[in-house]
Computed example of a mutant assay.
Amino acid sequence: MKRRNFLRASVLGAGTMALPFTLWEGTALAAPAQNAPSPYGPLGSADANGILLPAGFTSQVIARSGQTVPGTTLTWHNAPDGGACFADGAGWIYVSNSEINPGGGASAIRFNSAGAVQSAQRILTGTRTNCAGGKTPWNTWLSCEEVSRGFVYETYPFGGAAVQRAAMGRFKHEAAAADPVRRVIYLTEDETNGRFYRFVPTTWGNLSAGTLQVLVAGSSTSGSFSWANVPDPDGSPTATRSQVSGSKSFNGGEGCHYADDTVWFTTKGDNRLWQLNLANNTYELAYDDSLVSPGSPPLTGVDNVTGSTGGDLYVAEDGGNMEICMITPNDQISVFLRISGQGSSEITGPAFNPAGNRLYFSSQRGTSGSSSGGITYCVTGPFRP
């Protein structure tokens, strides 16, 4: 994704880029995303599943909490949350967390090349409040516990026993995103004064040992940043977020996504999407609901975030109007879909299949408003290449 990195370089020019940070910090590099018509056109009427979609898109129910996944013997978990897709030959696997306590864990559904369910299995059990997580380049799923001094568990959608990765720190984990260029894993923390971390494995591809670091920056919404080692990743007696002076506080870290030297993450306490430009170690706002114009902000209750093969970001709402909104590379935001009749739920786990023509996600509490009412969907259609 080029996004604002290209715009910044072309507008400021090489001479301006050389200015000292003290001058640069006060300059507005690029406005956060603003309202615009959807590239897919307006939403139509609710379909049989209660989902409003643009023309050309269709939805289907893949699984329901407490019920057997059709064509398998697996009972789908309650409170489906963060998810990801993995290529599996001509087909793929969709992995989904379970945000319940006790129990938690994660499950996986295998699809063939036509998108039909082939099998399903549990890949993690006996954990607590597994909220979001992240996919690794070596095809494992990092399932994160959203509890005080929670763990990250590395799970194996293609087979194998899950492993607790204590070296990645003990805190209220939310999401993870792998950066294969810098060979690190970014981590969000769901606290009102949470921090943004990265884990630097001693050996890339092996998460059993490494260094946990925290982002250090000023109090503004843009500027430069650096990383500092967290002295005690175990977080006891002093929480990891309180160990490094100058580490930047974020209000309720949620989803996290990496692509092309950029990592984005959401903060639910202030309805923001943050952007770290990793090539030059600067940060800025990609979205802020208080800065949207014209009209009202389409995205509130920001939560999970993913990216399409075409470079668009898709951000799911926890509450709000139960929408998934899209932000284009030229910083325009619009509503992609809306779920009707499920106002006591939240949208979780958005993830594209490898071809980029199917988007999986869940309504965590469905129409019942209870964790036992979760519904996992797939939307198929002409997504932008």
Rank of each mutant, 00 (worst) to 15 (best):
V216F: 09
N251W: 14
R128Q: 13
Y283T: 04
A177N: 01
D312G: 06
A116R: 05
Q243F: 06
T262G: 02
R128K: 14
D261S: 10
G159F: 06
S226L: 04
V95F: 04
V216A: 06
F86W: 01
N206T: 15
V147Q: 14
G366L: 00
Y40L: 12
V302D: 09
I93F: 07
Q213L: 07
Q60E: 12
N321T: 15
P382T: 01
S219K: 05
N277S: 08
V184A: 03
C378T: 11
K248E: 12
V335T: 15
L291F: 01
C85D: 10
D289C: 05
N353D: 11
V61M: 02
C131S: 12
S290R: 14
R241D: 02
A355I: 10
V11S: 11
T328Q: 06
G373M: 06
G255P: 03
S363F: 01
P298D: 14
T348V: 09
F250C: 03
G103F: 03
L207A: 13
P180W: 01
R338Q: 14
L142I: 14
L52H: 12
S245P: 11
T203V: 15
D288G: 03
S143L: 11
G159D: 07
A239M: 12
P137S: 15
E346S: 12
S247G: 00
L313N: 08
L273G: 00
G159H: 08
L12C: 00
T367F: 07
T238W: 05
A55I: 04
S59N: 05
P329H: 11
L74S: 04
D288N: 11
L212S: 08
H173Y: 06
A116C: 04
A120C: 12
G356Q: 01
G246H: 10
P157C: 02
T238S: 07
R165I: 03
Q118C: 11
G223K: 02
H257F: 15
V214F: 07
L212P: 03
A286C: 04
G356S: 02
T282M: 00
G71W: 03
K172S: 04
L29T: 10
F352Y: 02
G44E: 03
D47K: 00
E284G: 13
A87H: 01
F352A: 03
T203S: 13
F21K: 15
G169P: 12
N35S: 00
R122W: 02
G160F: 11
D47A: 09
S340R: 15
N112T: 03
I51D: 05
P137T: 15
W92I: 01
V230P: 00
V184N: 02
I347E: 04
A120H: 05
T136K: 01
I93H: 08
S107L: 06
